[in-house]
Amino acid sequence: MTGALSSVVVAGLCVSLGDQNALTDINISVESGDFLAIVGPNGSGKSTLLKTIAGDLAPTSGSVAIDGLAIQDLDAAAAASMRSYLPQAHVSNIPFDVRTVVGFGAFISDGIDASSEQVSIAMRRVGIDGLSNRSFSALSGGEQRRVTIARVLCQAASVMLLDEPTDSLDLGHADAVMAIAAEEAANGRVVLSTSHNLNVAARHATRMLLLDNGRIARMGAPTEVLDAELLSHVYGTTVRIIKDETTGSPIVLSG
């Protein structure tokens, strides 16, 4: 990516959905090189936080700034040049072939005629180069997921927002995708990703954010956030933490 540093700064953010407080007093600051994994139980506000950072939801109070600019005030093209977004997985009918769908990621720079080189690289990275001419609609859920991830990789935005990227992916592909997210951060992007999978997140993220009922329960290095007592309390189930002998990452066991 470019040499310039990028940042996402969330300050005093509160978001209400209907009469529910979905997020309360969220303060986050992430920069180029950071891969922040957002974790927490169902309904803790992970996706809401990501959508608000993407500019899809308006803050009730507080602010979200990408590179110092309020994302909500930007038009679609300007916002797309700053952040890419992977939506939650759902099977969809798109009448184009895989290569074309991946190329749509580069719409603001290349229209619908993305350079074949750029598209090929993105497809190779997620291991879908063999699907190039297949119809998107005919793919399995996991294949569609990887095509969508390749599309996000094609978008030249300094901030990458991923909502449950590992959903509908098998063990190997889930790990590979999180490794790609970590590479993107190492290359200078800011990566924020929600995840249900604490172990894969801990292995690849530089930092983790644990949400509990719309509030930050803890933010820090994976070893700081993956605390047995804290997780047991937040998830409402007994949690044990062991250490992976090979990688040194913490591993969460429940029950």
Partner: peptide
């Protein structure tokens, strides 16, 4: 016409890649 192609992703994803839906 090109924007219509991208709209096939769905309205929200099209907006995310830069289409003023």
């Amino acid at each position: 016409t090109d924007s219509l192609d991208v709209l096939s992703l769905g309205h929200q994803p099209a907006k995310h890649v830069g289409v003023n839906v």
